[in-house]
Nucleic acid binder design. Structure first.
Lengths: 143, 143
DNA sequence: TCGATTTGTTTTAGATTTGAAATATCCATG
DNA sequence: CATGGATATTTCAAATCTAAAACAAATCGA
């Protein structure tokens, strides 16, 4: 029980800090940044459904965030060639430029945030969180 | 970097599962449950500001959630005797009864979720998360 | 005591976020 | 070819959530 509270506290603390910096330094919100991060690796564009799966949020949520980013000219919607139901989303050249600049700063923040952990501790934490994730996924699957 | 993504994924996975169960089995939302959990330990009531600090959310957010719980008759606002600015919040008898039933189930879910981790691993994870939290708090403090 | 600052709460505007319902399209089967 | 089920996206209503502004009350120093 205390483990869960600490996990949540830790994640929320870092998330709040990153959110604050993204807003202060780049005027962007965290979910928009996260969505752009997914798109940065997919030059050809990916579907909204695939986006929502990767980001682990609902379809409707992705639609809203993409709407906002399209309005800002940072991403573009294009119909999928094969399937008329699906819509592909990709970064615009301007969106890519913006994202690259932000991503550089972002990585620096993360390094700073975990600066007090040595490589061994990071590996161990990765492994334990991986195991916790598996355990949780299994427990939450059935009901 | 990957450590941060895994931490976030793990926390979100569990949070989503708990949110789903709270809604399905008790018809309550997670933030309302979290707020009631804070109140359960404070029979005398605590101020809204203290609540927002403990829950690590903004004051305005706490106001909204308390409004909803007051409308449901689960918590009550009372003026603080010493300071006319502050408002104390406490569980109503009905709120306490409700919460106790939910908390029992909640604890069971958490136990299940971490069932695959042995006591040693849980201790280690607690310690590493504690260290990560300290590191993050320090890194996010300055700028 | 007076005024400036601090503290506690609410309000407001904007942005998520979820869950469910509605639409549109695809696909497999008969 | 028609149709029922599955898939992809959008829309909608309700609830959070943040940041910033607005107020109210308390506190502290001159």
């Amino acid at each position: 029980m205390r483990l869960w509270l600490r996990l949540l506290t830790c994640a929320n603390l870092i998330e709040a800090g990153i959110r604050r910096r993204l807003r202060a330094q780049f005027g962007i919100t965290l979910p928009r940044f996260d969505l752009m991060a997914q798109l940065d690796r997919m030059a050809e564009g990916i579907s909204l459904g695939e986006l929502s799966r990767r980001m682990m949020v609902t379809n409707g949520n992705v639609t809203t965030i993409v709407d906002a980013l399209v309005a800002q000219g940072l991403v573009a919607r294009t119909p999928a060639p094969a399937d008329r139901r699906t819509v592909l989303v990709r970064l615009t050249p301007e969106g890519r430029r913006h994202f690259r600049a932000m991503a550089m700063a972002y990585e620096g923040w993360i390094v700073d945030i975990f600066a007090d952990l040595n490589p061994f501790e990071i590996d161990r934490l990765m492994a334990l969180l991986g195991k916790a994730k598996e355990s949780a996924a299994q427990a939450l699957d059935d009901p």
